[in-house]
Amino acid sequence: MKDILSDAITIAGKDLSNEFKTKQTIGTMVIFSALVILVFSFAFDPTNNTVKAVIPGLIWVITIFSGTLGLNRSFVSELENNCLTGLRSAPIDVTSIYLGKTLANFTLVTIVQTISIPVLFLLFNYRFTGSLLWFILIVLSGTFGFIVVGTFLSALAANAKNSEMLLPVLLLPLLSPLMIAAVQATTIVLVNEQISDAIGWLQLMTAYDLLFLGACFLLFEFIMEGS
């Protein structure tokens, strides 16, 4: 397990240093998020109270759609010069490729959220008065589940002709339970309701994260065999 983790960190480190050098994917993700926030900030009047109800949904719309842009590139970038075969022929456990990619994608999406969520609050003139710790916990838990499933499906879709189209088609239905829980829990924290009401949703998200992490971890080997 120690070797799997250290190899995963090596792969994630390579992906992230590559990304910070080219800024190809993260740039697209940030621009997309900014555009969505800008469009919605014009569509809704910030002085209206109903805006509060829109913000939790918007946080997850930004996360899922900008994240999908990054996920698309995750394994497609390994197809150039057949680098994926290079990784698979290396003396590493194949699941470390999955873990490494998950780590790198999670870091990228978290960076985009760190930039876009404060901008969203700013443009919607929203003053955050809820529990920041719970809010971060909910956002990270939802994002992790999304990345766990998304990374797995991006590996599955990478070899398909229209992988950019295939990934959302496969991913969005699978994310439905997670997103329902994430939006509900975020709403509870943002409208400053009882935190205890959010715990049930957070438990559902944690269960989803663990279940899919285990399943993807076990099944990833079979995807690689077919690629």
Binding site: E80, N81, N82, G86, L87, S89, P91, I92
Partner: peptide, 22 residues
């Protein structure tokens, strides 16, 4: 499949370079 130590003994040069262009 999982024998990493055995795979370390093998150096594989394929059709493609397996190298990252960036």
């Amino acid at each position: 499949k999982k024998s990493a130590a055995t795979r370390k003994k093998i150096g594989f040069l394929g059709h493609e370079s397996f190298l990252y262009s960036t």
